[in-house]
Each structure stands twice: as C-alpha cells, then as structure tokens.
Amino acid sequence: MQLVNFISNLAMPLVILIIVVYGVVEKAKIFDNFLEGAKEGIKITISIFPTLIGLFVAVGALRSSGILDLIINFVTPMLNVINFPKEIMPLAMLRPISGSSSIAIATDIMKNYGVDSQIGIIASTIMGSTETTLYTIAIYTGCVKIKKIRFVLAVALITDVIGIVISVLVCRIMS
C-alpha cells in the first residue's frame, strides 16, 4: 500500500518537472505557453458550468425524492449475487452515456460516502479508467459520415461493463 501511495504521489510532480525542464532546455517561451493553456482551462470550466448546474439539480432531486432508493432496492438482490457495491450503481449506469452527468454523480457519491472511503475510491477509479463511450462513437463516426458502425457499439458497451467490474476489483485488492 505504501508503494502504491508513493507511485501515485510521485506521478504528478514528476510529470510537471519533466515538462518544465524540457521547456527550459529547448528554450520555449514557457510562461507564455503556460498562460495560453491556463486560459483554455478557464474556457473549459465555464463551458461545463451550465451542465453541472442542470445535472446537480436533477441528480439531487433523484436522491432527495426517494426514487433512487426505490430503484436501487429493486436491483440490489441482483447486485448482491456478484457482490457489487450498490452505491456505485447510478454511476455505472450513466458513465457511458454522459461525461458531465457522471462527473456530477461521482462527486455526489464522494460527498455522501466520503472521498477517501472505499466507495469514494471506487467511484474515482471508474471515472479515471473509463470514457464517455457513446459520445466518442458519435463524433468519430459522425466526422466521416459513416452510419454502418458494425460491432463497435456492442464491443464498447461490453467492455464498459468489464471496465467497471475491474475498477471495483482493483480497488478491493489494493485497499
């Protein structure tokens, strides 16, 4: 576990260090480039803000109205068979469909069960190791105007399920 923490903690400082040293050695205008990128960061954050407001309200309503508990109680017996944590279920269902709503739901899960709890760590791992499958397929096939996508959607969704189960297993084994 200590080694896992060490590698995790080393990754970010090391990447920043390597990039900045490379920039200095190659005499790039480092700070100008940094500012240019950081401005892009503001744009991205502002562009997802309306989505966050909309989805936080919707997900908050799902939770507080009691309907989510009703649905979860309904699927829990099935999840218990494979020992899958039911708290993760809303995230697992939305992750392939929408990036911003899965961010909202993951945040909500971390807030309710604790960021550093096992559930919080599983939610983080799912967020980091999977993608918004449907969006990706839509834009990649859309740009070449191809409608016949053969087996791609099926493969993507099957492996999304595998990916989520693997995230749960990896977190269980490592913690």
Binding site: I19, V20, Y22, G23, A28, E36, G41
Partner: peptide, 12 residues
C-alpha cells in the same frame, strides 16, 4: 491545461 500547453510546444 497550462502545463500541457508547455508540453505540446516541446519535442516531448
């Protein structure tokens, strides 16, 4: 985004 912009301008 700032750090990655620096990276994109080097030979990395």
């Amino acid at each position: 985004c700032g750090i990655m912009q620096i990276a994109s301008k080097t030979s990395i």
